[in-house]
Deep mutational scan, measured.
Amino acid sequence: GAPPLPPYSAGGREVTMKKGDILTLLNSTNKDWWKVEVNDRQGFVPAAYVKKLDSGTGKELVLALYDYQEK
């Protein structure tokens, strides 16, 4: 199953993602919540729920390892 959710501390809205989604990583300075862009929406997802990909394009991409439903 998915890892436990860290307390929400990102101070911005969250976004929903599905397992297998490829998201653009915008900011990973917060260790628990990373800012991503998905379907032209920006928001935060739990860092433990995604994995960085080596895209080779200069853009940082992450793979959704679990479904996440915004609150």
Score class of each variant (00 low, 15 high):
Gln69Ser: 14
Val36Asn: 00
Thr24Arg: 11
Thr29Pro: 04
Lys51Pro: 01
Val50Gln: 00
Lys52Ser: 07
Val36Arg: 00
Pro46Asp: 01
Glu14Pro: 14
Ala48Cys: 07
Met17Asp: 00
Ile22Arg: 04
Ala64Phe: 01
Lys71Leu: 13
Asn30Pro: 04
Lys59Asp: 10
Val62Met: 03
Tyr8Thr: 15
Pro4Phe: 06
Lys51Thr: 12
Leu23Asp: 00
Trp34Phe: 07
Glu14Val: 13
Arg41Ile: 15
Pro3Cys: 06
Arg41Met: 15
Tyr49Lys: 04
Gln42Pro: 07
Gly43Pro: 01
Val38Ile: 15
Ser55Cys: 11
Gly58Lys: 09
Glu60Pro: 13
Gly12Trp: 09
Leu65Arg: 03
Ala48Asn: 13
Glu37Tyr: 06
Ser55Met: 14
Ala2Leu: 13
Thr24Asp: 07
Trp33Arg: 01
Leu5Arg: 12
Lys52Cys: 07
Lys52Tyr: 08
Tyr49Ile: 04
Pro7Arg: 10
Lys59Ile: 14
Pro6Ile: 01
Val45Tyr: 01
Asp67Val: 02
Leu61Asp: 04
Arg13Asp: 14
Glu70Ala: 15
Gly58Ala: 12
Arg41Glu: 13
Pro6Val: 02
Asp21Ala: 04
Gly20Trp: 04
Val45Lys: 00
Thr24Trp: 12
Ser55Gln: 11
Gly11Gln: 13
Val62Phe: 05
Pro7Cys: 12
Gln42Ile: 15
Ile22Glu: 03
Gly56Asp: 15
Val50Phe: 04
Asn27Lys: 06
Pro46Arg: 02
Val15Cys: 08
Pro46His: 01
Arg41Tyr: 09
Thr29His: 11
Leu23His: 02
Ala47Lys: 05
Ala64Ser: 05
Asp32Tyr: 15
Lys52Phe: 09
Gly12Glu: 11
Ala47Ser: 14
Phe44Thr: 02
Lys51Trp: 06
Gly56Phe: 11
Glu70Asp: 11
Val15Ile: 14
Leu23Ser: 02
Asp40Phe: 11
Trp34Glu: 01
Ala2Thr: 12
Asp32Trp: 15
Leu23Val: 05
Asn27Glu: 15
Thr57Ala: 13
Trp33Leu: 01
Lys59His: 10
Ala64Lys: 00
Ser9His: 15
Pro6Tyr: 02
Glu14Met: 15
Gln42Met: 10
Val38Gly: 08
Thr29Cys: 09
Asp67Thr: 06
Lys35Asp: 04
Tyr66Thr: 04
Pro46Glu: 01
Gly20Phe: 03
Ala10Asp: 06
Gly56Ala: 12
Glu70Lys: 13
Lys52Val: 13
Leu63Gly: 02
Val62His: 02
Trp34Ala: 02
Glu60Thr: 14
Glu37Leu: 06
Gly12Lys: 07
Val62Tyr: 07
Leu63Met: 14
Gln42Tyr: 07
Thr57His: 15
Gln69Glu: 13
Lys31Trp: 06
Glu37Ser: 10
Leu65Trp: 03
Thr16His: 13
Arg41Pro: 00
Lys51Glu: 11
Thr29Ser: 14
Tyr68Val: 02
Arg41Lys: 10
Leu65Gln: 04
Lys35Cys: 12
Lys19Phe: 04
Pro6Ala: 01
Val36Met: 01
Val38Met: 14
Val36Lys: 00
Gly1Leu: 07
Gly20Cys: 04
Asp32Ser: 06
Arg13Ile: 12
Arg13Gly: 11
Val36Glu: 01
Trp34Lys: 00
Ala47Ile: 02
Thr57Ile: 11
